[in-house]
């Protein structure tokens, strides 16, 4: 009951043009933007990308706070990237002598460059997951990958697996909560003790959880078969993805962005 309302992924529900974009287009555009980020050969080239990020974020109605939250788990990596680049990259123009090390101008530029690259990568990816429900994302991925069926890539099966996982995560979390409580009622202790003791304490939780997950999987497979599921072949879909005007506009804008980035790189 307590876990009934967990949100999956970090989808931020809102009614915006970014939310409404075709998930396939969004995925492709994210890849394009990532390419643009790597094409950016100097700091000036980041300006159009950053501007693009600001505009898209505004359009998406996602609060900046939510975006920044996505960076939090990466704090350490970001700091490390910056510091390591700063101290260990070679350069010619000394900027600051700290005594134990000399910071070079080129190193500072590169440190800023790499950090920016990382930050932008994360922010753009977050933007995709914040504006696309996981199930739609799965859907989009399936359609994008479906041409690969020719080389026996199981695009449909993978998408089906992902969507079933999404459906059952809340159910299994609820179950885990219940089993944990039941074992606590029998005096189990999940909270104290050293690492080994705690790992051992998980057995009474994990065994029943696995047993239950397998039982559910068996039941579900039977229920799916009874409902005529027989793989992706000959299957129609309730939700059909169709590109609309806004999708083409988004593509055009992104293409423009790439051109700008390349030009900025050359101009310097």
């Amino acid at each position: 009951m307590a876990l009934n309302n967990i949100t999956l992924g970090q989808y931020y529900p809102a009614d915006s043009v970014v939310h409404r974009l075709d998930p396939r287009i969004k995925i492709v555009l994210l890849i394009a933007v990532i390419v643009a980020i790597f094409l950016a050969s100097n700091l000036l080239a980041f300006v159009p990308i950053a501007a693009f990020l600001v505009i898209v974020t505004r359009l998406s109605k996602v609060p900046v706070k939510m975006m920044v939250k996505g960076l939090k788990p990466l704090r350490l990596i970001l700091i490390l990237t910056f510091v390591l680049n700063l101290f260990f990259l070679q350069g010619e123009t000394p900027l600051l002598n700290l005594g134990f090390a000399v910071i070079k101008k080129e190193a500072l530029t590169m440190a800023v460059h790499y950090s920016l690259r990382l930050i932008l990568l994360v922010l753009f990816s977050s933007l995709l997951t914040l504006t696309t429900p996981p199930i739609t994302l799965t859907d989009g991925l399936e359609r994008l990958l479906s041409p690969l069926r020719v080389i026996h890539f199981p695009a449909h099966e993978m998408a089906m697996m992902m969507s079933i996982a999404l459906r059952f995560i809340p159910t299994l979390l609820e179950e885990a909560d219940k089993i944990m409580k039941a074992q606590t009622a029998r005096g189990a202790d999940f909270e104290t003790g050293n690492l080994i003791a705690r790992a051992k304490a998980m057995v009474p939780l994990l065994v029943p959880l696995f047993v239950s997950a397998f039982r559910r999987a068996g039941d579900l497979a039977m229920a799916m078969e009874a409902r005529c599921y027989h793989g992706g072949e000959g299957r129609t879909r309730l939700r059909v993805l169709k590109c609309q005007k806004r999708d083409y506009i988004a593509c055009a804008v992104t293409a423009l962005l790439i051109v700008c980035v390349v030009l900025c790189g050359k101009a310097y």
């Binding site: 199930i135 229920a223 799916m224 409902r227 005529c228 000959g234 299957r235 309730l238």
Partner: peptide
């Protein structure tokens, strides 16, 4: 719990229809 496939009710009802190619 073990016979609903989709994350939204409407889509779950669609599941069978999709399978038989409606």
């Amino acid at each position: 719990d073990n016979q609903l496939v989709a994350t939204v009710v409407r889509e779950d009802v669609a599941f069978g229809l999709e399978n038989i190619g409606i």
